[in-house]
Simulated scan of single mutants.
Amino acid sequence: MAYGKTVGPTCGTSQQTEIDQGTRIPLASPVPGANAKSGGKERVLGTCELVLTRTTFSKKSTMGELSHRGCRLFYTLEDVEREKKIYGKTAIPLGTYDIKLARSPRFDRVLPLLLNVPNFTHVLIHNGSYAENTDGCILVGNTKGDDFLGGSRKAVDALMKFLQPYASASAGIRIRVQHGKGAQASDK
């Protein structure tokens, strides 16, 4: 797949940076290996904080957006929020969770694994299109519809490419799960 480059604002600043149109991830995101010979384009990583903002709640799913430094990276789909957990059919609680990249036997690949989620185990960020695919995990995609994500496999590949430098540098990765301002219920 060919990726085009466009110039866009750097998240949270007035500076400009190139944005990869295929992944919508800033190309100027820091990468490990800072040195004077690199022309200042590389720098040591700090902790990567992803933000999952839940925006739409239906009877079937919870839709949202995954962002980094205020820039949306992907759309998300989770199970329904519930006061009382139903195994495999409930979204994780709001909060901030550390992430490690770990091999999933189910998916036979390395994926982001959320750590220390109360009353949940093995919460991954992985591909899928419908709430039936979540089992309490977070799905990511490039497009969205009613209770649906599209382009999910490509989104997971792009997310892993984005997170790998942070994991390689032992910089730390975490995710904050929150409700968005103006979050809305859907009658579907």
Rank of each mutant, 00 (worst) to 15 (best):
P105Y: 00
S129V: 06
A91P: 14
L124C: 07
L101Q: 00
V117C: 10
H126N: 00
R103L: 05
L114Y: 08
F107S: 04
N116K: 13
L113M: 15
S104K: 11
E132T: 08
T121G: 05
E83Y: 13
Y130Q: 09
H122E: 13
R82N: 12
A91G: 09
N133V: 04
Y97W: 11
R103I: 03
V123I: 07
P118C: 08
H122G: 10
S129Q: 10
D108M: 00
R106H: 05
R106A: 15
S129T: 09
L124F: 15
I92W: 06
K84E: 06
G88Y: 07
Y130L: 14
K85A: 10
T121F: 05
L111Y: 06
G128R: 02
A91I: 04
D108S: 01
V80N: 03
E132A: 13
V123E: 01
L115K: 15
P118V: 05
R109L: 00
Y130K: 08
S129K: 03
E83K: 15
K85W: 08
T96D: 02
S104Q: 11
L115F: 08
A102W: 12
S129R: 05
I86R: 11
L101N: 00
T96K: 02
D79T: 03
Y87V: 11
P118S: 11
D79R: 12
G95Y: 03
P105G: 03
E83C: 05
N127S: 12
I92C: 08
N127R: 10
N116R: 12
G88H: 14
S104F: 07
N119Q: 13
I92E: 06
K100Y: 12
T121A: 11
R106V: 09
I125Q: 08
I92P: 10
K84F: 06
V123R: 01
K89I: 08
D108E: 03
L101K: 01
I99L: 11
I99S: 12
Y97R: 09
A91E: 12
V80L: 05
P112Q: 12
P112T: 07
I125G: 08
I92K: 14
D98S: 03
A91C: 14
E81I: 07
G88A: 14
R82W: 01
F120M: 09
F107R: 07
E132Q: 05
P105Q: 00
P118L: 09
H126V: 00
V110N: 01
R109I: 00
S104A: 06
A131M: 02
Y87I: 09
R109F: 02
V110P: 00
H126K: 02
E132M: 06
F120P: 08
Y130W: 10
V123P: 02
Y130C: 07
